[in-house]
């Protein structure tokens, strides 16, 4: 055996070291990011939080559909297309809508109001009461949504919702977003961008878009936290619930209606 054979191959060591270092450098951030991401997804939903929206109708502009468009983009509703052969007038009644703009006129005074209307995330949601399988449910953090694995498509929740907030998927879907699974024959509605909650992201698509247009009519936040912006707004402004008579304690409140 030559002397050369017993020598340490420093070149080889350096190469291995560099390779290992590069490997760690490549993998580590992904591991760290993954850990950060999964924390909220792995933890149970926090019941001390109650997510909600406050709508200042005075700031909601006529003709603006920024919230509706943002919701459609965020949840893949802009990917739905009329099935071949569907009449446009019929399709308008059958496509899914999670948030819509409504313009009202007071019969007595003639005053006009604009507002976005979506699932009101009731504390006592009639849609949850009536669902035979329990697919329509309320999370501990107040978000009312549909479990798409147990929804049988009976539409009784749509009969029961006082806000017409829910949509039934009338057509086969060919395109959807991975974070918002949708499926023919199930019912769906606004879920306060629940994927954002679970990934620990701020706000909702509608509130964000409304703020970006400069209107700032939609405020998203924690109703259970007295120091949150939404709670401070609700404490200072007179607001009301739509269909207050039903005593559902909605998670969406309106000022100026």
């Amino acid at each position: 055996m030559s002397e050369r054979g017993t020598e340490i191959d420093r070149e080889r060591r350096r190469l291995l070291g560099a390779a290992a270092g590069a490997g760690v450098a490549l993998v580590a951030p992904a591991v760290v990011v993954r850990a950060l991401e999964t924390t909220p997804r792995d933890a149970p939903v926090d019941g001390r939080v109650r997510w909600g929206l406050a709508i200042d109708t005075a700031k909601c502009a006529a003709g603006c559909t920024a919230c509706v468009d943002a919701c459609a983009r965020e949840n893949g509703l802009d990917l739905q297309h009329p099935p071949e052969g569907a009449e446009p007038a019929d399709w308008a009644t059958q496509r899914a809508v999670w948030v819509r703009k409504v313009r009202l006129r007071d019969d007595q005074t003639g005053r006009e109001t604009n507002l976005p209307l979506m699932c009101q995330h009731c504390e006592h949601p009639p849609c949850v009461d009536v669902c035979p399988t329990g697919a329509s449910f309320k999370r501990a953090d107040g978000i009312v949504m549909v479990d798409r694995h147990t929804c049988i498509g009976c539409r009784y929740c749509m009969m029961a919702c006082p806000y017409k907030a829910r949509s039934f998927i009338h057509e086969a879907l060919s395109d959807q977003l991975s974070h918002v699974p949708r499926g023919k024959g199930c019912v769906e509605s606004c879920n306060l961008c629940v994927h954002r909650r679970d990934f620990g992201l701020p706000s909702t698509a509608c509130a964000e878009a409304c703020a970006e247009t400069g209107h700032g009519a939609i405020l998203f936040g924690d109703l259970a936290d007295p120091d949150s912006a939404i709670s401070r707004f609700l404490a200072s402004e007179p607001t009301r619930q739509i269909r207050e008579d039903l005593a559902l304690n909605t998670g969406v409140r309106y000022a100026g209606v």
């Binding site: 035979p132 399988t133 147990t150 929804c151 009976c154 009784y156 998927i169 024959g185």
Partner: peptide, 25 residues
């Protein structure tokens, strides 16, 4: 007429006893 008729077994195995619909089953 259900949107997901193949899930009838879900309706027969998952009950929300507050639902009048479930009572009717």
């Amino acid at each position: 007429d259900l949107g997901r008729p193949e899930r009838l077994v879900v309706a027969l195995t998952n009950y929300n006893f507050k639902s009048i619909f479930a009572w009717n089953i």
